[in-house]
Design a protein around this nucleic acid. Structure first.
Length: 445
RNA sequence: GCGCCUAUCGUCUAUCGGUUAGGACCCAAGGUUUUCAUCCUUGUAAGCGGAGUUCGACUCUCCGUAGGCGCGCCA
């Protein structure tokens, strides 16, 4: 029988990482087994299940590449069917009506009281429990609406689900659900329960611990590949030392048997590293697409610059695409920001204006203006004035880029271009002399 | 309280009775007297405690301990 799995979230407007991880594992399991991955929107809570919430859910799935093989099933559309099943159960004496506390009659499903309940969880192994430890439970509310357990099981039956892969918090429900499957003479699917994602204190990871929703990571600039890969590694490992995997590798090696059954901590440091890893390893064309989009969106003109050269320098230094405009605006505009700390440390010193002007003068004459020649010139200068290279390199860097960080200085100079470099050196020299940087910092304080 | 589950470096993990317990993140040092980043090299760091089974247990069993989950007319 071919594999059919489903992701069954209730749309609330946010998609929690623990939740989407269940989707990822389901998706991988389906793809690995050449089965079908289905989406069922459990939208029976009409208050929270707004069209926007559903849209958000669908967006997240698309962003992560979690494509489903059949049109989404909306649980709210099946209420009548759920109720019919409840009637059937009632008729066969497997459920009964009860009136607890005056709210009218609800329908309660009868759990066995004798013997043992149990199932083999594909990740946790044998699960056992005495019958009687699990109480009868409500399947239809006194207001006539079906309860989760009923709806969930009936829909799984109707959708032909063969494997239920979900969060650890559903383990106890499984004992109930299995009895429901049996009562309805339906084949009992296999179950697999995924460990929880926890925070530094070992508590369930929530909004309080930082970004907890897929949308938040997306906004912060994380790549879908990063999130997908990272979440997969929380509770699963291929068995060898690989960690950064392609989607195809994940599909090929995924196995529920390799899932851990203990909770995993969410380590943002590693996530950050992984994002940089993915960006660095992107083909240049793809990086270029993102780079260009961000730069132009920031209102920067790329006219007349060596884009390819700049990107070569920047790709290895990019942790988030969203950082790009701030990190390299100075390549595109003369109106770049100055890092106050760098300015104080490197420019607000005795003799700096003179030094910058001198270098500007020399660079103006230099022919050709290359990485080698600009480098050699400063080396020569350093030798003559018997100072270290640092005394020249740092002020120049801060003057032309406003920052203490960035590509190698001489690569940077060539990319900015001789004219701009010289003009900037002159301008900054003037501004330092006029106290322009000091007032700027004073104004900020 | 009752039930179920879990337990390897700080973190994510490998190991499926015999290993110098491996890798990755983080941190530290070096390559690197122009920064940042990358890259490379090296280093620090682990089997929760106690019994038992066994020639031999991280691995199997039991008892503790700690943590998680569940015990809704929520999903």
């Amino acid at each position: 029988m071919s594999v059919r799995v489903r992701f069954a979230p209730s749309p609330t407007g946010n998609v929690h990482i623990g939740n989407i991880r269940a989707a990822i594992f389901n998706w991988l399991f389906a793809r690995h087994n050449r089965g079908r991955f289905l989406l069922r929107v459990e939208d029976t809570d009409r208050e929270r299940s707004t069209p926007e919430a559903i849209r958000t859910l669908l967006d997240c799935m698309e962003w992560l590449g979690l494509d489903y093989d059949e049109p989404p099933v909306y649980q709210s559309a099946n209420s009548i069917r759920h109720l019919e099943v409840a009637e059937e159960l009632l008729g066969r004496g497997l459920a009964y009506r009860e009136n607890k506390g005056g709210g009218g009659e609800c329908v309660v499903f009868r759990m066995p009281t004798e013997g043992r309940l149990g199932f083999v969880d594909l990740v946790k192994g044998a699960m056992r429990k005495r019958a009687g430890d699990t109480q009868d439970f409500v399947i239809v509310r006194s207001n006539g609406t079906p309860v989760f357990h009923l709806a969930n099981v009936v829909d799984d039956i109707d959708m032909g689900i063969t494997h239920v892969i979900r969060g650890d918090d559903h383990v106890e429900n499984t004992f109930k659900h299995i009895e429901l499957f049996k009562a309805l003479n339906a084949p009992v699917p296999h179950f697999a329960h995924l460990p929880m994602i926890v925070n530094n204190q070992g508590k369930p990871y929530s909004k309080r611990d930082g970004a907890a929703f897929v949308g938040e990571f997306r906004e912060q600039g994380y790549l879908p590949d990063t999130i997908f890969n990272f979440l997969l590694l929380l509770g699963w490992a291929p068995g060898d030392d690989r960690e950064v995997l392609t989607r195809d590798e994940m599909i090929e090696f995924f196995a529920l048997e390799r899932c851990k059954s203990s909770a995993a901590r969410f380590d943002v440091k590693k996530l950050l590293w992984m994002n940089g890893e993915y960006i660095r390893n992107k083909p240049r064309e793809e990086y270029a697409r993102e780079f260009l989009a961000r730069v132009t969106a920031a209102g920067l003109s790329t006219e007349g610059v060596d884009l390819e050269g700049i990107m070569e320098q920047m790709q290895v230094r990019t942790r988030f695409y969203s950082d790009i405009p701030d990190n390299c605006a100075y390549f595109f505009t003369d109106d770049y920001a100055f890092d106050q700390k760098a300015v104080s440390k490197r420019l607000l010193k005795e003799g700096i204006p003179e030094l910058l002007e001198k270098i500007a003068g020399e660079y103006q004459q230099l022919d050709p203006f290359t990485v080698e020649s600009t480098h050699a010139l400063l080396e020569e200068m350093a030798r003559r004035q018997e100072s270290g290279m640092g005394a020249l390199v740092h002020p120049v860097r801060v003057a032309v880029s406003g920052s203490a960080e960035g590509p190698g200085l001489f690569e940077m100079l060539v990319l900015i271009g001789r004219e701009r470099v010289c003009a900037r050196l002159q301008q900054v020299a003037q501004r330092v002399r006029n106290g322009g940087f000091e007032t700027a910092s004073a104004a900020q304080d």
